[in-house]
């Protein structure tokens, strides 16, 4: 059975070579993701420097509790993801499925909190556009534009992650992985940790650094 699922693609000589190629390929992909997000991060840093007062004021109107809870949720989902990969490595298929589902549930929780947060911004007229209101911060709209673009792009990646992990959970339930072949789980894990890392930086940039400065 192992032979059927572990078939080495014809361009490779060994499963080792195949695995290392996929592993490095995903790291190269993550490097592109760093620069993709980097473009918006750069914009945020530039404007926080240019419109310091407005950005500080606007930043204080974000909801620190939601931000912190969501950070905890994502960090925990990274733990469950790491445990899922571990389960795959040692061949505990049931645990693999469980941890994948747990990770997906945490991701959905994150999206739920984010949704509530977005809704409150909407109620407070903090969505950039004609109805935007933020007293005392002339460039507050720019701050919120960044807030929505950065968290929106991140949320898009979370959604892609949920899809990816769901596929992995389905495949795992069909016993498609074993200790000799679990590369897709491992790579999905890398992607998921990367999504976590983006948030690790979004959290201080949006919620923390302007509380007292």
């Amino acid at each position: 059975m192992a032979e059927a699922t572990n078939a080495i693609a014809e361009q490779f000589d060994s499963s080792e070579q195949q695995h290392e190629s996929a592993w490095l390929g995903l790291w190269a992909f993550l490097a592109t993701e760093v620069l993709f997000f980097g473009g918006v991060f750069l914009g945020y840093i530039v404007y926080r420097h240019v419109y310091y007062e407005s950005f500080v004021l606007a930043s204080r109107t974000t909801n620190l509790v939601y931000g912190t809870v969501n950070t905890a949720v994502l960090l925990t989902s990274s733990l469950t993801m790491a445990l899922a990969v571990h389960a795959a490595q040692v061949g505990k298929n049931k645990n693999l499925v469980r941890f994948l589902i747990l990770t997906i549930l945490l991701a959905i929780t994150f999206m739920g909190v984010k949704g509530v947060e977005y809704y409150e911004h909407y109620k407070d007229h903090q969505i950039p556009g004609p109805s935007f209101v933020l007293k005392g911060a002339p460039e507050g709209e720019l701050f919120y534009y960044f807030y929505f673009t950065m968290t929106g792009l991140h949320a898009l990646h979370v959604v892609i992650g949920i899809g990816l992990l769901s596929v992995m959970a389905l495949l795992a339930a069909r016993r498609r992985f074993n200790p000799a072949y679990y590369t897709p789980v491992e790579l999905s894990g890398l992607y998921w940790h990367f999504v976590d890392i983006v948030w690790i930086f979004l959290y201080p940039l949006i919620y923390l650094i302007s509380r007292h400065s």
């Binding site: 592109t32 993701e33 620069l35 993709f36 997000f37 473009g39 918006v40």
Partner: peptide, 9 residues
């Protein structure tokens, strides 16, 4: 790999 994502964003 390192420049094109910046064009994308």
């Amino acid at each position: 790999v390192l420049a094109t994502p910046v064009l994308a964003i």
